[in-house]
Design a protein around this nucleic acid. Structure first.
Lengths: 315, 315
DNA sequence: GTGAAAGCGCTAACAT
DNA sequence: ATGTTAGCGCTTTCAC
């Protein structure tokens, strides 16, 4: 493996000049430049990026924490991040955490170890204070509503988005509305609770279904819903995949959607359109792109992305 | 930023001993070990992983090339890779290529630059010879049928899998069978053609639908199918998402599935179960895990993973 | 314009 | 057990 010094020797110049040529710096004579290029070629020179990273003190790499890479919600955010990263010449390091705090810490450590210049956390399990402790090592962006001047954030207004779904259902004459959450204790969960209780008063606990992330969760929840003596006549559901599972299972066991129960999903994933399902569109791709811009920015910022209720046939 | 030498000075030992302690090597006295640990603590020492990478000549990082991170097919493979990587203490660098050769080259270069120790290519656009040229820089694993001793591979037997779907449809009395492909010129495309023609003779060009990757593609193809004067009475479809788009659109425009057209998908994604769709199960998560094992292995190997026809209501 | 030289921070072979 | 020393390969300041 030839290195920069080998080239310098062969080209009859110094290592510094080789570095200049290789990095396209000005102030190198054409003859020397050509000599360096020829030598590099002749020696089959390949740059060692780790040496560059060490010498420069940065890696042009961003870490991305996500609980599940194969879930469309995170997949689409990741896709947005990836396309922005590519445009800006950055590489991406991903850590799939399964909401495991140990793995989240592992990812945070990449920042401390200078393996990545910045970190995007699409969702987390660990306490925010812990994340803040890492802000001194590089820019961190969270995909959740946040303020403060330690971390950047990009998010959908969960409260308003949820409220818009509720208002729509109310207009349609629905008053017994249930909903699902990913995790009961989560932040967006309390935003939903607040929006709900403002419109309908105290929530009935058994109308809130927890652990709703996948199609299978939706299927399961449909069964739980059907078993209720006082079934909600409408459901606002975490995301389109859960909603699909719910809707199809309801129909399978003999209920009508929206006759017996209206369904509103979130994301506007293509599947919702294929199933003619009402949903709240979230610009997830764009959210990912914004997150990337924030992570390479020197400034800390908090950005809200818009949502949009898309009325289709399930509500 | 304190470094190993600062610690050595404070602890009254050499840098080498500090390195030993930090890396858990044996043969360090307890007193010195403690002194080093204390000093590290006191100086808020953080290791610089780039220096480690440079000195060691490797990075414990694997690159993953995938055309689209948000497509469930690739997402699930990635998930398998990610979980295996985590278990083995490796990090993952991902490159979303959109089947763009430039970006594929970019990813291949990570290997050359020693940014990653190995590379997993889930799908590619660039010629195999080009990939082979990079095999000297580190282990490369492709997720496609392959032989030779330059690259490893893990794959489903496309020919047999497709054949099993065809045979099943034939048993059901279907003889006018069409199918979809991701890309006409692709390798799996020719495997399908071969399997098809062995059972049914010469293919009719207009019964093969190209560019089938997403739900929307399925929707579009349903329209094309419906417009045909000699419509196939069965379709074998690239993956469950395309199949979902196809199936739902067929029903929406007034056809019956499987009455007017049988549908068989691939992957056995949860969506196929929710829609009671017949599909050929592919163990994609496992495929990802195997790919990871291969990429960190010193040996080159070629592994075939099993498939399984799952009979449901769409065929 | 160009080169010398001092790092960047850590590892590991060798010596003791 | 511990230290010395020579890198790993590139960047960048400073001097000429």
């Amino acid at each position: 493996m030839a290195n920069i010094h080998d080239i310098a020797r062969v080209a009859g110049v110094s290592a510094a000049t080789v570095s200049r040529v290789l990095n396209g710096h000005p102030y190198v004579s054409d003859e020397k430049r050509q000599a360096v290029l020829d030598a590099a070629d002749q020696l089959h020179y390949e740059k060692n990026i780790n040496a560059v990273h060490l010498a420069r003190g940065k890696t042009e790499t961003i870490g991305v924490i996500l609980p599940f890479v194969s879930h469309p919600y995170f997949g689409i955010i990741l896709s947005g991040i990836a396309s922005a990263a590519e445009k800006n010449g950055y590489k991406l390091m991903i850590v799939q955490t399964n909401y495991n705090v140990m793995q989240e810490m592992d990812a945070l450590d990449m920042l401390k170890l200078k393996q990545v210049d910045g970190l995007i956390i699409t969702s987390r399990e660990c306490p925010i204070e812990l994340v803040e402790d890492y802000s001194e090592y590089g820019r961190i962006v969270l995909c959740e509503a946040l303020s403060g001047n330690l971390l950047s954030s990009v998010f959908v207004n969960q409260y308003e988005a949820f409220k818009s779904a509720l208002s729509f259902l109310k207009e349609k004459g629905k008053t017994n509305i249930g909903y699902t959450t990913l995790r009961m204790e989560g932040k967006s969960s309390s935003a939903r609770k607040k929006a709900y209780e403002e419109q309908f008063g105290e929530m009935r606990r058994h109308w809130v279904f927890d652990q709703a992330l996948t199609i299978e969760d939706g299927t399961r929840i449909a069964g739980e819903w059907a078993a209720l003596h006082d079934r909600p006549d409408a459901m606002v559901i975490t995301n389109d995949f859960v909603a699909v599972g719910f809707l199809l299972e309801c129909r399978r066991i003999g209920f009508s959607v929206p006759g017996d129960v209206s369904v509103v999903g979130f994301d506007n994933h293509p599947i919702s359109s294929a199933l003619n399902m009402t949903t709240v569109e979230l610009p997830l791709q764009q959210l990912g792109e914004i997150a990337f811009q924030q992570v390479i920015s020197v400034e800390i910022s908090h950005m809200e992305v818009p949502f949009r209720l898309i009325k289709r046939g399930s509500a």
